[in-house]
Each structure stands twice: as structure tokens, then as C-alpha cells.
Design a protein around this nucleic acid. Structure first.
Lengths: 149, 149
DNA sequence: ATCTTTGCAAACTTTTTGCACCAAT
DNA sequence: ATTGGTGCAAAAAGTTTGCAAAGAT
């Protein structure tokens, strides 16, 4: 994703251009989804996106949010992470890949340093010819709070 | 889990004893679920367990399989892994913890060497006070076949 | 005989789909 | 004017639950 989206408008324009370049269109639901994802640093589940979009623009239907997430994912603007407890979380594609870990008790998601799994990726490649995609699933465990109590 | 279950009967007896020790019971659905999990080295999704059990004993209801998986998990005999594409996979608890990686394209699950994430676990603990549970989610990526084509 | 677990059916949650209409290009 | 995307409602997929009856102890 090219320009650092300091302003939401820039993001919308950029994505709009890329959609049009593929013969697709920038629409209200897609704008709403991008707006929600851009202002949130947390990772949102599909249902959470639906709710936030709904608050922003009640005319946008649930199904359109799902379709927008799919379309924007295909474009590469949005990515998802699978988290063990609780399905799929969505976020804007970040120029620097980041990894995720989720607390299996309180479900909080931590963002981790990009290189964390580089060594493991190498091992998997040489030992199993498996190409790791490190950002695509969240590691599981217990966060500081939950492991303490 | 204690005895190497070379024979299915041993496993059933062992688990039966442990259930009774807790005031619970060994039943046909639970036997069927254990039988299915014991003869399969692959990891099965809930629905796949339902199907296999159904083939083994058509009288066992779908819901009983879910309940058996839950009961046996609580007992510690069964464990589950969250896999990105396709929910939750179940397997018998193994004396030696093993890790999982799933191909996001063909959904095959690889079993990995136990120590693979030890280094990462240490880093997460010291850097984020996060206690990693390495076997609980499957890493994601592309297997040999799928990355080739 | 007791009391856990079952089978069933229905409810629930989350996501997908068919279709007529709307709207971005 | 095109035709891709939307809103809607219904279907699909996956899991859970309340309850009377069955069965393990």
C-alpha cells in the first residue's frame, strides 16, 4: 500500500484509484469499511466491523461489509488474521508485516516484531519445504494480566 | 496420557477408569469418538469426527460427538488445535507435545518438532510477558506441493 | 436406584448467496 | 448506458441447548 495514509482522504483516493484501475468501484460501504479500519489500531472481527460501520452509516448492510472486506482483501488493502478463539480479525495492510499473538483467556491481540519468526520460517523451509506466512495466524497463549491471575 | 495405546482396548479402559474416577461415565459415543481419533493419525475437524463416528455407529448423534469432544478435552485425553482455514481440529493428547502447521491452500496439517518455537517462546516471555502455548494454533503457510504449483 | 449422558429438535451464531434495483463510472 | 455493487431476505454452515428418556454405575 503506497502512501502513508496520514489523512483518511488520501487512503480513500488511493484505494479508489486502484479499484477503478481494475474496473471496480469505490462505494459507500467500502468507504465506510476503510474509515473504520483506518481509525482503529486494534484488530476488529467481522462482526465488530459490521457494528462500527453500522454506527457510521446505518444504510450499509451487514452483507455488504463482508463483501467489502473480501473485495478489499483481494485488492491487498486489507488483511486478516485467524485467531484461535474468535474467528477472523481484519486490519489495513501495513507496509511492514507484523505478527500477532492472542491471549486465549481475554482475547486481546498483541502486535509483535516482524522478524520474530524468521528463524522458524527458515527451519520450516529447509526441513519441510513449508513456506511460512507468519502474519496470517495469531500465536496463542496467555498475556501478562491473565498469566498472573 | 499414560499407557502407550498400542491397543485401542487399553485406551478405552484407561480413559474409562479416569472418567469413573471423576464420577463420569464411559459411553458409546465417547468410545466411538476415541476409536475414531485413535485410528486416525490425521487431525480431524469436528464435522469430520461426526462423520467418522456416524459411520462407525449411526446411533450416535451429532450433538453427542460435540459433547464427547468437550468432555474428553476437559479430561485431558483430547486436545484441539485452531487452524486458520476451517475451525478446530481434534486429536488424542500426545505424551510429547507437538506443533502444527497448516497449508492455507490445501488445508493439510503437518506435525512439527516440539522444540521449534522454544526460542520464540522465550522472546515472547521476556519481551512481552506473554506465555506462549505453542501447540494450540497451527502456523499457516504453503506446503511443498502448493508452493510449487 | 441414582444421576450422568444421550437423542432429538430447535435455537443460535456467523457467513454466504440469489436477485431485483441502484448507482459509479 | 453499462454493469458492478448494494440491500434484502433466505439459505447455509457450524455449534449449542433444553428436555424427557436411556443407560452406566
Amino acid at each position: 500500500v503506497s502512501p502513508a495514509p496520514g489523512r483518511l482522504t488520501d487512503l480513500l483516493d488511493d484505494v479508489g484509484g486502484r479499484l477503478r484501475a481494475r474496473g471496480e468501484r469505490m462505494t459507500a460501504p467500502r468507504r465506510a469499511v476503510l474509515t473504520v479500519l483506518a481509525r482503529q489500531e486494534e484488530h476488529l472481527g467481522a462482526e465488530a466491523v459490521v457494528e462500527a460501520v453500522s454506527a457510521l452509516d446505518p444504510a450499509v448492510h451487514r452483507a455488504s461489509v463482508y463483501r467489502a472486506l473480501e473485495a478489499l482483501s483481494e485488492l491487498g488493502v486489507v488483511q486478516h488474521v485467524h485467531v484461535g478463539h474468535g474467528g477472523t480479525a481484519y486490519h489495513l495492510t501495513d507496509p511492514h508485516v507484523h505478527l500477532h499473538a492472542q491471549c486465549r483467556r481475554c482475547a486481546v491481540i498483541l502486535d509483535l516484531e516482524p522478524g520474530l519468526l524468521d528463524g522458524v520460517a527458515g527451519t520450516l523451509l529447509s526441513a519441510h519445504a513449508f513456506v511460512l506466512e507468519p502474519g496470517h495466524v495469531a500465536l496463542s497463549g496467555l498475556c501478562e494480566r491473565c498469566s498472573a491471575s
